[in-house]
Simulated scan of single mutants.
Amino acid sequence: MTSTAEPDSPADRQPEPGLRADAERNRERILAAARRLYASDGLGVSMACIAREAGVGKATLSRRFATREELINAVFADRMDAYAAATAEALADPDPWHGFIGFIQAVCAMQAADRGFADVLAMTFPAAKALEGRRAEAYDGFLELIARAQAGGHLRADFTSQDLVILLMANAGVVAATQDAAPDAWRRLVGQMLRAYATPGTDLPPLEQAPAHTALYRAMLRLARPATGGDTERTDSR
């Protein structure tokens, strides 16, 4: 008696090489589009807008990234790696206070370079496991950095890890508000906050010059201006 092999089930069949290549190209196009839009406009950009920017349909975007958190996890994986690396570099500094200053400046600079990442560091995404894992790793290192800097007598005893969260939230707001009119305003904020964190007599880097009145006025005008039709397409909630 001869037997015939049963056909493969749909789950066992592998996609054709051409289909796999197309899927990978679409994925890369989506990631590139999301990086561009998140960097310029923050995380308020809608999934529909990202699909348009990538030149794919909403269904294609949903197949590659079923949720917003999945997309954010993929887009910012390398930046979260850099965030964790900044903590490790600060801990490797033989001068704990210098390491603390370097960490604060480096992380706030990362926020200034990418509005989306500025938002990521000021929010939490429980469904994005890899991203949150790297955040937790950086957080544990920062706790050690705080303890070392306080033991050295240069960081105020009442400074806590919550103060970093507050700083990152504040810096994200400054970056978003002044990105065009006064793009270096965040440096002034960081300099002033380091002065608030330091014990009396501690050496500090020079304070950045305050933004010009006219630059801040332009930023304030832009914040007061209603969103245009173009801006409306960028968000899910409008």
Rank of each mutant, 00 (worst) to 15 (best):
T202F: 13
F159H: 10
R156K: 11
A34P: 02
G44Y: 05
A176Q: 11
D95N: 07
A177V: 09
A227C: 14
P96Y: 14
G152H: 02
L168C: 07
S237M: 13
I166S: 01
T2V: 15
S3T: 10
Q105M: 09
H213C: 04
R218Q: 06
G133T: 05
M220F: 09
V175E: 09
R25H: 08
G141A: 03
A90C: 10
T87R: 00
L164M: 08
E233M: 11
L91I: 07
A176L: 12
P205G: 03
T228V: 00
G116K: 11
Q14K: 15
K58F: 06
S46Q: 05
A90V: 14
V56M: 05
A92Q: 00
E16P: 00
A151V: 06
R222E: 15
P226V: 01
Q179M: 10
D180T: 12
L167K: 04
D81Q: 08
H213E: 15
E24H: 06
D8F: 11
L145Y: 03
L131K: 01
I104W: 05
Q14N: 06
A39S: 12
E137S: 02
D114N: 14
P10E: 02
R64Y: 03
A151L: 04
M47R: 09
G152W: 01
A185K: 10
A219Y: 15
F142D: 00
D236K: 13
A86Y: 08
F100E: 15
D114F: 13
G229Q: 08
A90P: 06
